[in-house]
Amino acid sequence: MIEPNPKADLRRYLQDAREALLWKLEGLSEYDVRRPLTPTGTNLLGMVKHCAGVELGYFGDTFGRPFFSEEPPSWWYTEDADPNADMWATADESREEIVALYRRAWEHSDRTIETLALDAVGHVPWWPEERRETTLHHLLVRVIADASRHAGHADIVRELIDGAVGWVNGNDSIPPGDQAYWETHRSRLERVAREAGNA
């Protein structure tokens, strides 16, 4: 009989989302990793930067384990920061710097996850006073949902950039087909959408 290990299960899904998000940067130019492809500016490197900040906040500050020993960076979640500063990289912030920060965030988060029990209580400083108290379990679920959501955004953004698709390296999770197949498939969906719109 397999012994249940909820913490290991949660940690595995978190790591899957982390790695999927970083994989979407591979092989792209500096321009393409920063390129805003939605009206609100969604871009690949910005999502990595955001997810690093989310982990450092929820698995660091919330449990009295701050990552920044001195002043946090200018884009950190403070009242003075630009509301979207965590969702894009400045020209001075290199891809290597942001990816390294995300990987260090994983290490910091993983130490918190390994050290504390799932029912350990933390206090989220930026939540309303009446809801600040929460558990590691709750925050793990929340961060997995956030990272997975952004990994899904990254899937779409990457496909818009160069057509690359897939959940993880070596597993594209879609039916096989060459470019002609997908063009035919997309044309069929467009036709069906127009027919339904005119019905």
Rank of each mutant, 00 (worst) to 15 (best):
I2R: 14
P4M: 06
P4K: 10
A8H: 13
A8W: 07
D9G: 10
L10G: 12
L10I: 13
L14V: 11
L14C: 08
Q15E: 15
A17I: 12
A17K: 04
R18I: 02
R18N: 11
R18H: 13
K24I: 07
K24M: 08
K24V: 06
L28S: 07
L28G: 06
E30M: 08
D32P: 06
V33P: 02
P36I: 04
T38L: 03
T38D: 01
P39K: 04
G41Y: 06
N43G: 06
L45G: 03
L45W: 03
H50A: 02
G53E: 00
E55P: 03
L56I: 05
F59K: 04
F59Q: 02
G60E: 00
T62E: 00
F63E: 01
F67P: 03
E70M: 05
E71W: 01
P72T: 08
W75T: 08
Y77K: 09
D82M: 03
D82V: 03
N84K: 14
D86Q: 14
M87Q: 05
M87S: 06
R95S: 07
A100R: 15
L101F: 05
R103W: 00
A105E: 02
E107M: 06
H108G: 05
S109C: 09
T112S: 13
L116M: 11
L116G: 05
L118Y: 05
D119A: 12
V121D: 01
V121R: 08
H123P: 01
W127T: 00
W127Q: 06
P128H: 09
P128K: 08
H137S: 15
H138G: 04
R149L: 12
A151P: 03
G152I: 05
V157S: 00
R158P: 08
E159R: 02
I161F: 09
D162W: 13
D162Q: 12
D162G: 10
G163S: 11
A164C: 07
A164F: 03
V165A: 09
W167A: 08
V168S: 14
N169E: 14
G170Y: 07
G170H: 08
N171R: 13
N171K: 12
S173F: 06
E183R: 14
T184Q: 13
H185I: 03
R188Q: 14
L189N: 14
L189P: 06
E190M: 10
R191W: 10
A193D: 06
A196Y: 13
A196C: 10
